[in-house]
């Protein structure tokens, strides 16, 4: 199913089991925060891990997903799932023009262009009236799912977020293991060769970019509903940096790496919060240790040692 091989299928079953027991052991809002970060990192990993393009502006799509989901929820009172999906539509709608501009370059230039474009989105969000500027969009209702499931109940909200996460996770896996994914990998491996076989590589990169930004928007939309708020932090470059860190920490181009990375980063943020600025310092230190000691990231390293495909 979904192109999972044996190791990955076992890993996925384990992940589903964890999704089921987690809210009974941990604070559900914490797990939801983790799942939103994990989906965001998985979406980012689609670009860096499978197309080989480092986007330094993914917060733009995550943040726009937050704003649009929050705004539609608050002003149109639509269904919660529809609001989350609106976040995805926003991510894709923004990803299409920005991706079109960015994919013409590669390597460090791609990273710089995505960063510059994301900064423009940030300043747009500072100025645009609908985002609420410095205040953001606050007191966003969670509303109902399918009109009758009240999501103010944390457990109900949790199952929705878990389902959205799992769907996104499996979709990414399917993308990577589709005929399209094969071409993506060939572009990552040797773009001139892919071109010489007759593939218009720009088209493939753009579609991958839009899929990635769409899922980043979905992750943002889910986060806005969980916390009932969308703010400038969500579109800030530090959020872009964090998703890079999360993915590197977990393991670039691995299936479970972004999820494990998100678990580490979100846990650190939550449990170290009382130490104030030390969170950032600790994160920096953990990141440096990771890059120096195990370059493949946590999951990449485990997979290499145990000869598994995770």
């Amino acid at each position: 199913m979904f192109g999972l091989d044996r190791d990955q299928a076992i890993g996925t079953l384990l992940l589903i089991a964890l999704l089921i027991i987690a809210p009974f052991i941990l604070y559900p809002v914490f797990v939801m925060q983790l799942l939103c970060a994990a989906l965001f990192a998985c979406a980012f990993n689609l670009m860096i891990g499978y197309v080989g393009l480092l986007s330094f502006g993914h917060a733009a799509f995550f943040g726009m997903g937050c704003y649009v989901a929050a705004w539609t929820m608050k002003h149109w009172h639509i269904d919660a799932l529809a609001a989350i999906l609106m976040g995805g539509v926003a991510g894709a709608a923004l990803g299409l023009p920005l991706g079109w501009l960015a994919i013409r370059r590669s390597g460090i230039y791609f990273a710089m262009i995505t960063l510059a474009l994301a900064q423009m989105v940030y300043f747009f969000c500072v100025e645009a009236p609908f985002t609420g500027g410095e205040d953001g969009i606050q007191q966003v209702p969670r509303g109902h799912l399918f009109g009758f499931i009240n999501l103010n109940n944390d457990m109900a909200m949790y199952w929705l977020v878990a389902a959205v996460f799992l769907a996104g996770f499996l979709l990414i896996h399917r993308i990577v293991h589709s005929p399209f994914g094969q071409v993506l990998k060939s572009i990552r491996e040797n773009e001139p060769r892919a071109t010489s076989l007759g593939y218009r590589t720009d088209d493939y990169k753009l579609i991958a970019f839009v899929l990635s930004t769409c899922l980043a928007g979905v992750a943002g939309g889910a986060k806005a509903l969980v916390f009932g708020i969308a703010t400038l932090t969500d579109v800030h470059y530090s959020t872009s940096g964090e998703v890079v860190l999360t993915t590197l920490l977990g393991g670039l181009g691995t299936v479970f790496g972004p999820v494990v990375g998100a678990a580490v980063v979100v846990s650190m943020e939550n449990y170290l919060a009382r130490f104030g600025d030390w969170v950032t310092v600790t994160q920096g230190a953990v990141f440096m240790v990771c890059v120096l000691a195990f370059r493949r990231g946590i999951v990449g390293e485990i997979a290499a040692r145990l000869k598994l495909s995770l």
């Binding site: 979904f2 192109g3 399917r174 993308i175 293991h177 589709s178 005929p179 399209f180 994914g181 094969q182 071409v183 218009r200 088209d203 493939y204 579609i207 899929l211």
Partner: peptide, 11 residues
């Protein structure tokens, strides 16, 4: 063109 990202690579 192989844009079908929703299909299994088994095709």
């Amino acid at each position: 063109a192989s844009f079908d990202f929703w299909r299994s690579e088994r095709v």
